[in-house]
Amino acid sequence: MNEDNVNRDNVPGCCNTGLESESEPELKFKFESEFEPKIVGFLCNWCSYAGADKAGGSQKSYPPNVNVIKVMCSGRVDPQFVLKAYAAGADGVLILACHPGDCHYKEGNYRALQRHRMLLRMLNQLGIGSERCRFDYVSAGEGDRFVKILTEMVDTIRTLGPINRPGLNNIDEYSSEKRSENGYSIIGS
């Protein structure tokens, strides 16, 4: 990862702890009662997406806060997708993969794990906080596990509250269409 590519001036939240609300319990309570977390879940096609379908097939209710985006492999999850999700308004991101050794593409889940580890360090530096990005494994048969992980994630984000994001959307300058126009990336992998 080449951190020099990150223009810190244009990445709001960078010098912001993002945790100010925790020192004000009343405010936090207010957040908890009204706040509906928005979470993006990147699910691999073969295991975790099938696990989510399994939960559906057995009609297990869970909080509706996770918006699922299917990718063929968790290894396809570019760390920039995760940043993009925060920029576009997500309060949390879930990356779900096949269990170690079960990856349909042999080792994509290991790559995803490596990138997630790297991303967590960066999320702390950005003031977003590593708790807002969870990587986990769900197999095609683990509907219950999918529901458990998802529910825990919603609870975690509900407790953390929304991301302190004054002007965070500026990060858009570094991704999406702008990225291809500018021809550079904010993170290498």
């Binding site: 080449n2 990718v71 063929m72 492999c73 290894g75 396809r76 999850v77 570019d78 760390p79 349909h104 593409y105 080792e107 994509g108 790559r111 990138r115 990225r179 291809s180 021809g183 550079y184 990336s185 290498g188 992998s189």
Partner: peptide, 19 residues
């Protein structure tokens, strides 16, 4: 078509059809 290389390319030169 797993797309691992696409996520890994530091230059954004790899793309993944349909994804």
């Amino acid at each position: 078509g797993c797309g691992t290389c696409v996520a890994a390319c530091p230059a954004g030169a790899m793309s993944s059809n349909h994804f």
